[in-house]
């Protein structure tokens, strides 16, 4: 799952150090335009459905936070 997510992220935003960054949104490394692309890819790749309430910075600030979100939606 992590590998697939990393593939989506590096394709969407090349040049960002997703392995170590923990404030992707807060630091402006991911913009709201990127989140739309990433969410579309996540929903397609992991067959999960998000809610508007899930589209908060806390869920997209790090790879771990995104994985946690995907896992919670898949359960």
């Amino acid at each position: 799952m992590r590998e697939k997510l990393m593939e989506i992220l590096t394709e969407t935003c090349p040049g960002v150090d997703f392995e170590t960054e923990t404030a992707l949104i807060d630091d402006g490394l991911l913009e709201s335009l990127d989140i739309v692309t990433i969410v579309a890819e996540i929903m397609d790749a992991f067959e999960v459905e998000l809610n508007v309430e899930d589209l908060v910075p806390e869920n997209f600030n790090s790879v771990d936070a995104m994985l946690e979100l995907i896992q919670s939606l898949a359960e």
């Binding site: 709201s32 335009l33 989140i35 739309v36 692309t37 969410v39 579309a40 890819e41 929903m43 397609d44 459905e49 998000l50 809610n51 508007v52 309430e53 589209l55 908060v56 910075p57």
Partner: peptide, 22 residues
């Protein structure tokens, strides 16, 4: 609002100014 927006999250979608839930 939620289903209207979520229906748009498909590969290749573009958006100009996505708003936060708040």
């Amino acid at each position: 609002l939620s289903p209207l927006i979520l229906a748009q999250f498909k590969r290749g979608v573009i958006a100009n100014a996505p708003l936060s839930p708040a």
